[in-house]
Simulated assay, not measured.
Amino acid sequence: MSYYNSLSGLRAAQTDLSVISNNIANVGSVGFKKSRAEFGDIFSSSPTQTTKMIAGQGTKLLGIQQQFTQGTLETTDKTLDLGITGEGFFVVKGQAPRSDVTYTRAGNFSVDTNRHVVDSIGSRVQLLPVDANGTVTGTSLSDMVDFDLPSASPTNANAALVNVSIGEDGLVTATFADGSDSKLGKVAMASFTAIEGLRPVGDSHWQSTGDSGAAAINSATNGPLGSIQSGALEHANVDITEELVSLISAQRNFQANAKAIETASTMTQTIFNIHG
């Protein structure tokens, strides 16, 4: 039995090492959220057995839990670099024909050749429609529109776009050469009842699941969504020192379980020699 106990310990330590290594590898990934492996003991007995005389049967992986704590914001010189202070996520829509909706904390946005504002994987940033006063007029997924930069004023084709600003509430305002401005919308943001239930799909993007609950869509500064900081990016929430200490601990656990297997093997060989 000790073989199987130690083998489960080896597998657990190996999983722990993999999770920690992934955290360290992504220390430079914008909007990345670290994970933590969680384990539980294995124990079983029949109703007629006394638990005082039974040893445990090893350990098992309960799950790899994501840690959605706030990452550090770094100031940049780019208006379309957006950082979130709070629990919200940006809403982005993938390319046709799938047009899948995902959620991200990575706000390193740019403009493509069609003047769509896109993220690092080409998904289009979504805006909520607003009225002339900047008040949101719709908060459902079907109300959202692509964040597109106009080339000129909607009222004067000769007035080129000269500036774009994004407020803490996500309001996007375009200013044109003739001094006029236009409110394009507010950056769509999402929150979830059980944030740990989100399904990671890579590139610091997540999808909603039955475990996370449906996305609650709104603009920044509402509820738990937090505020938007233009000209800033959120770093990975990975503390490299903490991860290195955890890496050493996981390595020691692996070595200890390997030693336990070696000891059990030596004892078994000794018994065989006695009987031989």
Rank of each mutant, 00 (worst) to 15 (best):
M1D: 09
N5G: 13
G9C: 00
A12M: 01
A13K: 02
D16E: 13
L17D: 07
V19G: 12
N23C: 00
N26T: 02
G31E: 06
F32N: 03
S35E: 15
R36K: 15
E38I: 15
S46P: 07
Q49N: 08
T50S: 15
M53C: 08
A55N: 15
A55P: 05
G56V: 07
G56D: 06
Q57K: 13
L61V: 10
Q65Y: 13
F68P: 07
L73F: 08
L73E: 09
K78A: 14
L80R: 05
I84A: 09
I84S: 11
E87F: 07
F89L: 10
F90N: 05
V91E: 00
V91N: 00
G94D: 00
A96P: 15
P97K: 09
S99L: 10
V101P: 01
V101G: 05
T102D: 10
Y103R: 03
D112R: 04
H116K: 13
S120N: 12
G122R: 07
G122Q: 08
G122S: 07
R124Q: 12
R124T: 15
L128V: 00
D131A: 02
N133A: 15
N133S: 14
T135S: 13
V136Y: 04
V136L: 02
V136R: 00
T139R: 07
D143A: 10
M144Q: 11
F147Q: 01
A152C: 06
S153F: 01
P154Q: 00
T155I: 01
A157W: 03
N158S: 15
L161I: 03
V164A: 05
S165Q: 02
E168Q: 15
E168G: 15
L171Q: 12
T173V: 11
A177W: 00
S180D: 03
S182D: 07
S182G: 01
A190H: 03
T193Y: 10
I195G: 01
G197M: 04
L198E: 01
L198C: 02
D211P: 08
D211G: 11
S212M: 08
A214E: 13
A215L: 03
A216W: 08
I217V: 06
A220Q: 02
A220G: 05
T221L: 08
N222H: 11
P224V: 07
G226M: 09
I228D: 00
Q229I: 14
Q229E: 15
G231K: 05
E234I: 04
E234M: 06
H235P: 02
N237P: 10
D239F: 09
T241C: 04
E242Y: 09
Q251K: 12
N253K: 14
N253S: 14
A256Y: 11
A258R: 03
A258T: 13
A258G: 09
A260K: 09
I261V: 15
E262W: 06
T263I: 14
T263F: 04
S265P: 09
T266I: 08
Q269K: 14
Q269W: 05
F272Q: 14
F272G: 09
N273I: 06
I274E: 08
H275L: 13
G276C: 05
G276L: 09
